[in-house]
Write a protein that binds this DNA or RNA. Structure first.
Lengths: 201, 201
DNA sequence: TTTTGACCCTTGAAATAAAAAAGTCAAAAA
DNA sequence: TTTTTGACTTTTTTATTTCAAGGGTCAAAA
């Protein structure tokens, strides 16, 4: 039913708006319903529980992310340039959805059910496979030296994610990192990416 | 007074034994005293408070660490080999003193006072300066390309620390990471170090 | 088929009480 | 005089209780 799917999307977008400002756990189903001017049971008509709604939100965010990087991927030739572009895309998502704590290698306490955690890890895995594909391509091109593409992607992404998680911990323990911290983080990731790609040649 | 210093060292070593097994916060001054067969006020005769004792412990651990890496440093020629050797030393310390949570870029909740945190950060800074020295040396040798040695050291150490903090979060949320997790972490750090150094050439 | 007001039950935050640990001191021992 | 201690006080942590808030349901209405 296309109408039902549209309603679902509307609810997901409403939920995202709240989640961005207050995080998942501090957003109630009532608040989401009120924002959309419907009653709580209406929400439950479209989503069996809060978990399913959060799942829908995560799915939406990641599918937006993958759409963007796949589009960029088609427009760029060199591995190093691709990775730099993806870092900036990732960074935009990281900032925008910071309150959902979807970054940092592993899911944090926001994702309280096993179902959510495993779905999140699936998205991370998909990202890894995508990057592995890039590395493999570059190997075939002769752009970088022979290597295990999957292991390389894993190491590369872990290094980048490690940088972010450190920068967050490092800085002031505020709810939200400062603009400066975000910028430092981005710069470090870019520098690391450059060195990393050069090191693969 | 050399006798007093000896007593202080004995107490520090006793404290370390407890800290290694139960962490800083779950070790009481009473337990340390009992282990050493003295009374609690004796401890307070040598250390004004628990913080000072923890400070002594951190100092001891880091001075052991620096002693080891400086000795290795003198015996190795190439930058890449030095870094690999230091990773293994760091790894041994990381495992041994895991319960003190001294690794991971920034001090965690174990270090509850501002004094301890800042001292810990000073040690990290010293490590960074040491590594910056190595990079500068390698630049002067022509072993790696011209670059900002300090920034490079910062990025290098953050990348390594990021890897560890991710591996810890990633794995089972047990009190103590498994042998396998430690091994994976070490391998990733070594691989990253190799690629990083190559990328600096 | 979709929406809702009224309801139930579980969970989590706030408040409080109890326990444990940090830290002190006067006096004894070395 | 320096070092050690038992007994004590104060602070911090942990456990327990209470209670409101939020997740989830249902019969009835639109």
């Amino acid at each position: 039913m296309v109408e039902t799917d549209k309603k679902r999307d509307t609810i997901i977008e409403g939920a995202i708006k709240r989640f961005i400002h207050y995080g998942i756990n501090k957003t109630t189903m009532n608040e989401i319903a009120e924002d959309l001017s419907v009653s709580k049971p209406s929400l439950y008509y479209y989503f069996p529980d809060k978990n399913s709604l959060v799942l829908g939100v995560i799915d939406k965010i990641f599918s937006d992310y993958f759409e963007l990087i796949e589009k960029e991927n088609a427009a760029i030739v060199l591995l190093g340039d691709k990775l730099l572009s993806f870092i900036e895309i990732g960074h935009r998502f990281f900032q925008k959805y910071y309150m959902l704590h979807l970054s940092g290698g592993s899911p944090d306490s926001s994702l309280n059910s096993e179902e959510l955690r495993s779905h999140f890890m699936k998205m991370k895995e998909k990202n890894k496979q995508f990057h592995a594909g890039l590395f493999q391509e570059a190997i075939n091109n002769g752009e970088i030296a022979e290597a295990d593409a999957e292991k390389t992607a894993d190491l590369y992404l872990d290094s980048l994610a490690g940088i972010s998680s450190l920068c967050i911990l490092h800085g002031n323990k505020e709810l939200f990192p400062s603009k400066k911290e975000f910028k430092t983080m981005l710069e470090k990731q870019i520098n690391l990416s450059r060195i990393f790609v050069k090191g693969l040649k």
